[in-house]
């Protein structure tokens, strides 16, 4: 395992500002710089996976193979609205309240 420190590294260049916006993280320039450097170090090591030939290999999303886990179409009890809304940072009557939405998806 020591070779994690010795192996040939692949340089990675991250547009950290774009990534932070995608992830909805409001970070300062200083923070962005720091995170970019740290992420690049980790990604350069992580990029080692690219050295392993994987032609014809199917990726694994689930460690335990299973298919068709279905639920019957039956209505079950819902949560108590007050209990749910009690956790809301801001509410208006029976609704969750959020600041104005600028652009629509």
């Amino acid at each position: 395992m020591a070779y994690y420190y010795h192996c040939r590294l692949m340089p990675v260049d991250i547009d950290i500002g774009k990534v932070a916006r995608l992830a909805r993280l409001a970070l300062s320039e200083d923070e962005l710089n720091r995170y970019r450097q740290q992420c690049e170090v980790v990604l350069e090591h992580a990029a080692r996976v690219q050295a392993l030939p994987t032609d014809g290999v199917t990726g694994t999303s689930h460690p335990l193979p299973r298919t068709n886990a279905f639920r019957d179409d039956i209505v079950t009890e819902c949560l108590d609205r007050e209990e749910v809304l009690a956790q809301a940072p801001e509410r208006d009557g029976d609704y969750f309240l959020v600041p104005r939405i600028l652009d629509e998806q």
């Binding site: 079950t76 819902c78 609205r81 029976d94 609704y95």
Partner: peptide, 22 residues
């Protein structure tokens, strides 16, 4: 369907707000 795609909450138009939730 009677219930939602991934949970047992009822599907229906016009229920009081935030009642068909889990």
């Amino acid at each position: 369907t009677e219930s939602k795609m991934f949970c047992g909450c009822a599907v229906g138009f016009g229920a009081p707000p935030n009642t068909n939730v889990c």
